[in-house]
Design a protein around this nucleic acid. Sequence first.
RNA 1: GAGCCGUUAGCUCAGUCGGUAGAGCAUCUGACUUUUAAUCAGAGGGUCAACAGUUCGAACCUGUUACGGCUCACCA
Length: 497
Amino acid sequence: MNDQLRVRRQKMQELRDEGIDPFGHRFERDAMTQGLHDKYGETTKEQLEEEEHVVTIAGRMMTKRGKGKVGFADFADRDGRIQVYVRKDQVGEENYHIFKRSDIGDIMGITGSVMKTDTGELTIRANHVTFLTKALRPLPDKYHGLQNVEQKYRQRYLDLISNRESFDRFMKRSHIISAVREYLDQHEFTEVETPVLHTQAGGASARPFTTHHNALNIDLYLRIALELHLKRLIVGGMERVYEIGRVFRNEGIDTRHNPEFTMLETYAAYWDLTDVMDETEGIFRFAAQKVNGSGQITYQGQSIDLDKPFKRIHMVDAIKEQTGVDFWPKMSVADAQKLADEHHVEYQEWWTVGHIINAFFETFVEETLTQPTFIYGHPIEISPLAKKDPKDPRFVGRFELFIHGGEYANAFTELNDPIDQRERFEAQAKEREEGNDEAHGIDEDYVEALEYGMPPTGGLGIGIDRLVMLLTDVDSIRDVLLFPTMRPEKTLTDDEL
RNA sequence: GAGCCGUUAGCUCAGUCGGUAGAGCAUCUGACUUUUAAUCAGAGGGUCAACAGUUCGAACCUGUUACGGCUCACCA
């Protein structure tokens, strides 16, 4: 234990000896710091002296400046900060002693009158200080905040206390999710909750986490998607449903992937992709408006306009626009390979035309899509779960939304033909047997549901974490997850406590 | 999975050529009744991530390990 920890424990004991509970009780405040700034920020020093507004706040002491028989300290609550001015002759000797012996990090309640200092800073002149909670450990540097990246993730509370921009970002995350809910609720979607524990992973290609239920004695999977249960609800007549929920994928971790992340999926009966595009645009625009007050945002130094209608372009046209290569004419695999060779696009032997089209898209187009762009008409080969385009069976009813070169939404005209669905599940099951552990087996129960009839449906998936990254202008998913997945640290010894 | 980088006081960071470790904040003592990263005077605080090696001598050089970061690869 270092000197700082010892001193704070001693001070805790001093408080007890003085009859003060160092871990106090209910405290009623009548003002928030930001509210005071809003209310009195413009009022003059003289006017505040005349009017005498007595308020009570509570918060954590963030800085402290002692000056003999007076002291200044900044207190933070969830809204912001305010300076407090404590005078010995005003609060009395005993009360001043408590303030004097308090440490940065301690939590207190302050009652006093609103004033302004000579330099014009809004301040509470304390009449009384109520000690509420002792901090037994020192806070990170008051000026630099917590900079250690690992510690920010492992001890997020310290990051939240000492880095206000981080605190604000997480508040914003919460507001973004509220905005998404508000938008969908306004559009007559019903929010539902479906199981996290699945007897069979499905709805996406990904490796699942497995777990075990003791009483039933069965292995269960943590869900990798929300899809199949939500579509059962479309069969059940709910018509417009959504879920915002955690999904789990047992895959790598990097700046854009965390093993657990938050997905939004929505399904609307009788909609086609045009409707879903409108919905997607609506969600992005509404959320941006709610949290940033504008659809004009800056992401990693790049201006992005979410207010303007998003561009909508077929994948083949986008490739043509960017490279001049035209994949519209029907062509053989050899023709496509020749085009790939000419443009130095690498391909595998077994690839068909659709795979090569996709490779062209990823190589030449994706990173150029800075402004919001819907790419639709994916080749069927890369979209095994989507419904074929009846007018051109080489492509499917699917779109993805790209912004700043990254994918933000993925949508389908949902496959509602149970015969076709069963065949595709069988193909997946076969892949699984051949060793693809991201493919999954036949979900008989789901196929049966489809046999009762699922109306034509438009489905949408949005990675909420990436939406939050976009709207808060950060480039690592860990900066929008309060507690990102980390490898455990070594066990702390007594000395480190 | 590969490559590169990081880990020094509670926090933020220096540390030259290999010679027993420094600053600011924080802490402690004293001064100070409108301070603003308060100031002034003094003091204490270190398993230099861990282990092994090279060396008369290692924070520094070498190796291994742990944790983290970035890039690439993988990835509906």
